[in-house]
Protein backbone atom coordinates (compact mmCIF):
# COMPACT_ATOMS: atom_id res chain seq x y z
CA UNK A 1 0.00 0.00 0.00
CA UNK A 2 1.56 3.25 -1.08
CA UNK A 3 0.38 6.81 -0.53
CA UNK A 4 -1.43 6.76 -3.87
CA UNK A 5 -3.62 3.81 -2.86
CA UNK A 6 -4.82 5.68 0.18
CA UNK A 7 -5.41 8.84 -1.81
CA UNK A 8 -7.45 6.97 -4.43
CA UNK A 9 -9.53 5.37 -1.67
CA UNK A 10 -10.02 8.77 -0.09
CA UNK A 11 -11.07 10.18 -3.47
CA UNK A 12 -13.61 7.38 -3.86
CA UNK A 13 -14.99 8.03 -0.37
CA UNK A 14 -15.24 11.75 -1.11
CA UNK A 15 -17.18 11.04 -4.31
CA UNK A 16 -19.52 8.64 -2.51
CA UNK A 17 -20.19 11.28 0.14
CA UNK A 18 -20.79 14.05 -2.37
CA UNK A 19 -23.07 11.94 -4.60
CA UNK A 20 -24.92 10.78 -1.47
CA UNK A 21 -25.61 14.36 -0.35
CA UNK A 22 -26.88 15.28 -3.80
CA UNK A 23 -29.02 12.23 -4.59
CA UNK A 24 -30.38 11.01 -1.23
CA UNK A 25 -33.72 12.46 -0.20
CA UNK A 26 -33.81 11.33 3.44
CA UNK A 27 -32.27 13.77 5.93
CA UNK A 28 -30.61 10.98 7.95
CA UNK A 29 -28.96 9.57 4.83
CA UNK A 30 -27.74 13.06 3.87
CA UNK A 31 -26.15 13.51 7.29
CA UNK A 32 -24.54 10.09 6.93
CA UNK A 33 -23.10 11.04 3.54
CA UNK A 34 -21.67 14.20 5.12
CA UNK A 35 -19.83 12.04 7.63
CA UNK A 36 -18.35 9.98 4.78
CA UNK A 37 -17.24 13.22 3.11
CA UNK A 38 -15.37 14.32 6.22
CA UNK A 39 -13.89 10.84 6.74
CA UNK A 40 -12.45 10.99 3.22
CA UNK A 41 -10.55 14.14 4.22
CA UNK A 42 -9.44 12.45 7.45
CA UNK A 43 -8.05 9.48 5.52
CA UNK A 44 -6.13 11.83 3.24
CA UNK A 45 -4.69 13.62 6.29
CA UNK A 46 -3.54 10.40 7.94
CA UNK A 47 -2.05 9.05 4.70
CA UNK A 48 -0.13 12.28 4.05
CA UNK A 49 0.95 12.42 7.66
CA UNK A 50 2.44 8.93 7.44
CA UNK A 51 4.11 9.60 4.11
CA UNK A 52 5.65 12.83 5.40
CA UNK A 53 6.60 11.42 8.78
CA UNK A 54 4.96 14.47 10.38
CA UNK A 55 2.43 14.20 13.20
CA UNK A 56 0.43 17.39 12.73
CA UNK A 57 -1.83 15.76 10.13
CA UNK A 58 -2.91 13.08 12.58
CA UNK A 59 -3.46 15.77 15.18
CA UNK A 60 -5.80 17.55 12.79
CA UNK A 61 -7.90 14.39 12.42
CA UNK A 62 -8.81 14.40 16.11
CA UNK A 63 -10.14 17.93 15.85
CA UNK A 64 -12.03 17.11 12.67
CA UNK A 65 -13.73 14.14 14.34
CA UNK A 66 -14.91 16.38 17.19
CA UNK A 67 -16.16 19.03 14.77
CA UNK A 68 -17.97 16.39 12.68
CA UNK A 69 -19.67 15.06 15.80
CA UNK A 70 -20.83 18.56 16.74
CA UNK A 71 -22.09 19.17 13.23
CA UNK A 72 -24.12 15.99 13.03
CA UNK A 73 -25.54 16.64 16.51
CA UNK A 74 -26.91 19.98 15.38
CA UNK A 75 -28.16 18.40 12.16
CA UNK A 76 -30.05 15.65 13.96
CA UNK A 77 -31.50 18.16 16.43
CA UNK A 78 -32.85 20.29 13.58
CA UNK A 79 -34.20 17.15 11.85
CA UNK A 80 -36.03 16.09 15.04
CA UNK A 81 -37.66 19.53 15.47
CA UNK A 82 -38.58 19.54 11.78
CA UNK A 83 -40.26 16.14 12.02
CA UNK A 84 -42.22 17.31 15.06
CA UNK A 85 -43.27 20.41 13.16
CA UNK A 86 -44.15 18.89 9.77
CA UNK A 87 -44.31 15.15 10.42
CA UNK A 88 -42.09 14.40 7.41
CA UNK A 89 -38.49 13.36 7.02
CA UNK A 90 -37.77 13.90 3.30
CA UNK A 91 -35.71 16.72 1.84
CA UNK A 92 -38.35 16.98 -0.92
CA UNK A 93 -40.88 18.23 1.61
CA UNK A 94 -38.79 21.32 2.27
CA UNK A 95 -40.51 23.61 -0.19
CA UNK A 96 -41.58 26.55 1.95
CA UNK A 97 -38.77 28.65 0.54
CA UNK A 98 -38.72 28.78 -3.22
CA UNK A 99 -35.40 28.29 -4.97
Amino acid sequence: MTLNHYLILSGILFTIGLVGVITRRNVIMILLSLEILLSAANLAFVAFSRALGDLSGQLMVFFVMIVAAAEVTVGLAIAVVLVRQTGKMGADELRGLKW
Binding site: A41, S49, V67, E71
Partner: peptide, 17 residues
Protein backbone atom coordinates in the same frame (compact mmCIF):
# COMPACT_ATOMS: atom_id res chain seq x y z
CA UNK B 1 -22.38 24.37 4.82
CA UNK B 2 -21.08 20.95 5.82
CA UNK B 3 -20.35 20.09 2.19
CA UNK B 4 -18.40 23.35 1.94
CA UNK B 5 -16.49 22.44 5.13
CA UNK B 6 -15.72 19.06 3.58
CA UNK B 7 -14.31 20.77 0.47
CA UNK B 8 -12.26 23.15 2.60
CA UNK B 9 -10.88 20.30 4.70
CA UNK B 10 -10.04 18.16 1.69
CA UNK B 11 -8.21 21.11 0.20
CA UNK B 12 -6.22 21.59 3.41
CA UNK B 13 -5.28 17.88 3.31
CA UNK B 14 -3.78 18.27 -0.17
CA UNK B 15 -2.04 21.50 0.75
CA UNK B 16 -0.60 19.76 3.79
CA UNK B 17 0.45 16.74 1.75
Amino acid sequence: GSVASGFFLYGIAFLYG
